[in-house]
Design a protein around this nucleic acid. Structure first.
Lengths: 117, 117
DNA sequence: CCGAATCCAGGCGGATACTG
DNA sequence: CAGTATCCGCCTGGATTCGG
């Protein structure tokens, strides 16, 4: 019990909630989708148009992933309209990310030194 | 038209602090390194042994990236020893991630959480 | 309007061997 | 001990086309 070596095992890698979460929403488009859905619900093409540069393919994949995580709900309206919205869990996460965004914005110039907007 | 369309442009994608942060530390090994360095400083091979499954190559790359972000400091001791530590900024981020981990663990049903110490 | 299917390039990350 | 260098598989993500 003298020198205690903490080992981050592969099990830990899979088990650590924050690691999983970061890998899930740390992809290219999830944050943009979450941000848009935070204000109001959107249709598919509406999201497609609003997120500059995204492909329909990746929008589909991103939405499916967020849906699987219970962060986004998908409700077909007419046969021509599908509505995507943040679930309560999604809104909850959004708040957390918002807090993280406060931190990031505050320490941004010092660390990543990219042009502040 | 009075319908206001919020567009997440490519510029926004680059500018959004939280998006950049998530993409930076949302990689495979950064969280593990941050967690280990949160408790105490480590040498290179010490980290290598402690993080199960990581290759020296990826450990180097991860450390360099964290160093570039100002989250980790690298201080050569002897010619045979280099010490890695979390910077104050790194500790600051670690606290934020810990809070996020609390949230993740609560909504995850996960077994292990980020043990804060 | 809302996707699915296919094809393809680039980057992330692993394995291995070598250096000071 | 603390890395580099090289090769390579795989997965992410973009472009395009097709279907309901």
């Amino acid at each position: 019990m003298s020198t205690e070596t903490v080992v981050v095992s592969a099990a830990d890698y899979d088990a650590c909630p924050v690691t999983r979460l970061l890998r899930r929403i740390g992809d290219k488009w999830s944050p943009a989708v979450i941000r848009l859905l935070a204000t109001r619900t959107h249709g598919f093409n509406e999201l497609d148009r609003s997120i500059e540069g995204i492909s329909r393919r990746m929008l589909t994949r991103t939405l499916r992933a967020l849906e699987d995580d219970g962060l986004v709900s998908r409700t077909p309206q007419a046969s021509t309209r599908v509505e995507y919205a943040l679930t309560p869990l999604g809104h909850s996460l959004r708040e957390q990310l918002s807090a993280l965004g406060q931190w990031a914005a505050a320490h941004d110039g010092a660390t990543l030194s990219v042009d502040p907007r």
